[in-house]
Design a protein around this nucleic acid. Sequence first.
RNA 1: GCCUCAUUAGCUCAGUCGGUUAGAGCGGCGGACUGUUAAUCCGUAGGUCCUAGGUUCAAGUCCUAGAUGAGGCGCCA
Length: 509
Amino acid sequence: MPALSPGRQTEGFFLFGACAGHVFNDDMKRTKIAEVLTKEPIGQEVTVMGWVRAFRNNQFIALNDGSCARHLQVVVNPEQLGEQTLSRIKFGAAIGAVGRVVESQGKGQRIEVEAREVTIYGDCDLEKYPLQPKKLSLEYLREHAHLRFRTNTFGAVFRVRHALAYAVHQFFHERGFFYLHTPIITASDAEGAGEMFRVTTLPLDNVPRTPDGQVDYKQDFFGRPTNLTVSGQLEAELGALALGEVYTFGPTFRAENSNTTRHLAEFWMIEPEVAFADLEDNANLAEAMLQYVCRYALEHCPEDLQLLEERLLEEEKVKPQDQRSPMPLREKIRFVVDNRFERLTYTEAIEILKNSPPNKKGKFQFPIERWGADLQSEHERYLVEKHFQKPVILTNYPAAIKAFYMRLDDPKEGVPGPTVAAMDILFPGIGEIVGGSQREERLDVLLQKMRDMNIPEDELYWFLDTRRFGTCPHAGFGLGFERLVQFVTGMSNIRDVIAFPRYPGNAEF
RNA sequence: GCCUCAUUAGCUCAGUCGGUUAGAGCGGCGGACUGUUAAUCCGUAGGUCCUAGGUUCAAGUCCUAGAUGAGGCGCCA
């Protein structure tokens, strides 16, 4: 690490990292580029630090420090600077500059910094540096994910991701929800949300066995088999039935061999759980939350979203017309904020799909024939993207295709079979972004369901205790955070909205 | 897990019907440049044509298998 200021390096870096504030070290104040560009403190001297994005005409440095999408133009005097320093101002180099903020003579920016002093913190060897000052493919950048934060696109994606995460907490906090940290390592695997990653300290090359040849988990760290969590829902229910309204927001793990643009083996999930709430309350909450966080991003990330919108436009130029987004990115987000989501039952959806042109013309790969079949993504896409052209909340699915904990509906005229109080929220381009339900709070109904579905009661005694003692109607949902980030940033592959994606065959970095 | 497509210079890609010495743009490097905006101009280096087999007088090009990547499907959030 190049010296910043002898004797105070450690403290300087600590402060810089810890509070992201103004103090860099005691004799040097770093002003963030976002602040310089917003406040435009003309005539004042500032110290800025960042990474060189372009050096033009031996004079003009485009400097970016990650605080915002825009670059600050730093103007240097090549004669005053000297050849030695001049030759080290290269794409990717970390530099600092001290100088006066002035109105720019050029057309591309309103203000610039006239540097009287330039410090090189870190050189960048461009023969070896994987990034180049040119357009790089997302696939290439994915292979260099440790450096892709330094590009315009990924800078924007991760600033927007942060804003969305912050907005999620703000939304729930404002409504009196408590943030509950549910366990990441869990012994429960009866929920059936997906394949699990085993957590063990047993030696794989010499696994202890019981006399009958089974793995002896009594000798494992926890004295029993444990896995990484696939959902915090069951634990969140325990919290909700005491604290009233809780939410979780944490990492979730699925060992499914999923190879798609919307699945990860490690992803972040938001799971609110609300006591004394039914399915309608649940749908209202999910809709309000999605609109709140989308509005927050529109208001707080205008420049990043503009950049991402232009990027998407550029990316879609090469696609045929019918595969392009019907609206520019920000308009699409605004549309979600301003319009009520379409709500309909599974039974109603089946009727629409049955009579839809693609079904009648045999265009669906899986034709809709009977009530009770699970909807394929082609059907969901038709409803969201063609029929309603807005987010859709589908409710009251057949009980047979949904999880055991969902509340059994009262029989209803015109509905061929038993249904549960489930809901899925479908977004254009993303598909299922939310899955939730009113939970089965009646012990006898729940036990019967568990027996029918072969779910062991004794392992879930703690879950069933909520129904044994002071049970109440309650509901909740799970929202895939990366899918939300996908929607808001317009990134088409989920691997590009999480810093270090985990998926089959890939755990780099 | 299944299906489809791709893999050629650092990156993005072209390479005709199987035929002589595999090209371009960008990027890099060297130089010029005191108002640039993906700066510009001049010069220059850079190749295991993914790997292993096979067909052929001859393979970047055709065939087989594998690896890697992308997209779609399933599983879901």
